[in-house]
């Protein structure tokens, strides 16, 4: 019979240990087991799971964030609203949802480059940027980018000016961060769609910096 959770850490550690020791090691089989259990108990329909997968494969993803950035480049009033309250500003697009209720925008300048991490888990603004890349969730990124951000950024091919400071934002609470990259030269007169097409996912996390007008 389903009840509330126990909030008993030792109990959960024991359950973890038991399950991890006895379940087949393949993650696909473990996930299939969970789905079967939930479907059998009427807690979720497989068709609804299909719809979540489709929504986050086809509709929700970094193209949303790119639209927001492009609009901020074109519209100074929107940019002011975005920098003031990003959670509210993205509702103008209907992009709000999972993990964007406490969204903050941080802006790259000539003198400051911003990069986002969650060292304690892997927090990410899902409804605006979609699923996070695997490297964002990997131990190497979580461990290293707070300690040696310039070395990690170099691995991503980011070039920093002599006067550019790096600020790493560690998402330790429910705030989620969107990096607003700089608009590249050579894009004068471009439409929002044209601009959005050159905004990369990594540039909105901060592992890309100089966007290319030609690409």
């Amino acid at each position: 019979m389903t009840s509330g959770t126990s909030f008993d850490r030792d109990k959960l550690a024991k359950i973890h240990d038991h399950l991890h020791s006895h379940l087949p090691p393949e993650p696909a089989l473990r996930v299939k087991a969970l789905e079967s259990l939930l479907v059998e108990r009427g807690l979720v329909a497989s068709e609804t799971l299909d719809a979540w997968v489709d929504a986050y494969s086809e509709d929700i993803g970094p193209k949303r964030g790119a639209q927001v950035v492009a609009r901020a480049w074109l519209d100074v009033d929107f940019k002011a609203r975005l920098m003031d309250d990003a959670a509210k500003a993205i509702t103008e697009f209907g992009f709000e949802g999972k993990a964007t209720g406490d969204l903050k925008a941080v802006e790259n300048t000539d003198s400051q480059h911003n990069v986002v991490v969650c060292t304690l888990c892997s927090c990410y603004p899902f409804s605006l940027l979609g699923l996070s890349p695997a490297w964002y969730k990997a131990s190497a990124y979580r461990a290293r980018v707070v300690r040696e951000p310039r070395k990690v950024l170099e691995e991503f091919g980011v070039e920093l000016g002599e006067d550019t400071a790096v600020r790493v934002w560690d998402s330790t609470a429910e705030l989620r961060y969107l990096v607003v990259p700089q608009r590249p030269a050579g894009t004068e007169g471009w439409t929002q769609e044209q601009l959005a097409a050159i905004v990369t996912r990594n540039s909105m996390i901060g592992t890309d910096r100089v966007l290319k007008a030609g690409s």
């Binding site: 009840s3 509330g4 959770t5 109990k11 359950i15 399950l19 259990l37 108990r41």
Partner: peptide, 10 residues
């Protein structure tokens, strides 16, 4: 899975 067991869901 662990929380499902903890909550008595399965």
């Amino acid at each position: 899975l662990a929380l499902g067991v903890d909550c008595g869901t399965f």
